[in-house]
Amino acid sequence: MFASALPRRAGAGFKPEHFADILAEPQPVGFFEFHAENYMGAGGPPHAQLGRLREDYALSVHGVGLSIGSMQPLDRDHLARLRVLCDRYQPESFSEHLAWSTHDSVFLNDLLPLPYTEATLARVVEHVDQVQTVLGRQMLLENPATYLLFAESTIEETVFLAEIVQRTGCGLLLDVNNVFVAATNHNLDPHDYIARFPLAAVREIHLSGHSESVDDVGAPLLIDSHDTPVKDPVWALYQTVLDRIGPVASLIEWDNDVPAWPVLRAEAISAQKLLDAATRRRAA
């Protein structure tokens, strides 16, 4: 099985509107990540652009629609499409979310939360196994940004993820912004969450911005909106992770109100500086 192998550098989420700027000069990023579902057409400019990026950069395929946390069987047609995409681009990594998004035949286009029970654990493990078998590669599973909890949950999220890793051999995509968002939303300490997280399985990190709202009783409710620069407490949390595990592939995600390329690039450079410092500390 092909193990996930992104360079231990900063990367950026690829947006078509940045393509010309990206090609204009060598960019200080180690890889680009793209959403699988937006490249499931047969041809056209999307594939022309990816093919060109592939010549110069490592690629990460990030699925957003597989619905791994669904209680119903995985969509075999969709798995086949992912297989075609991975065969075509031979990406260094494939990742998906600990979430669900399809029910019956309706695709809800959001990453919906899952109660953590023995039953859902068994289902997710079965699905991750199936994905890895069909794709012939290790996948990375991402921790979710959640807004609510379930009365029936009996397992801590970090334990739930560790169990999946142990039973399937998948890797983890640690979204540090999601950790901060979810911890705030559930009145928990994000550093405590990181301390409990199975960090040895982390192969990629996500960094992004969030926005602030309030819940039913006026408490802070953060939204994982990917529409701002990475916020200071998230950078601090990222630094903590790097201190623990050293440099790891780190992606800046910016999906709403997408800025001009130089802004996204500057965010990636900020991440790269922290990665470089982590590399120097490892060498020292």
Binding site: L108, N109, D110, L112, P113, Y147, L148, L149, F150, A151, E152, S153, N185, H186, N187, S213, V214, D215, D216, V217, A219, L221, I223
Partner: peptide, 25 residues
Amino acid sequence: GLAAWNTATPERRYGVYRNNVTASL
């Protein structure tokens, strides 16, 4: 069956998902 640390009826929290689905589509 939904829960939150500070309320038993997290309508606004569920509303975030509701809003995400419609707004994204």
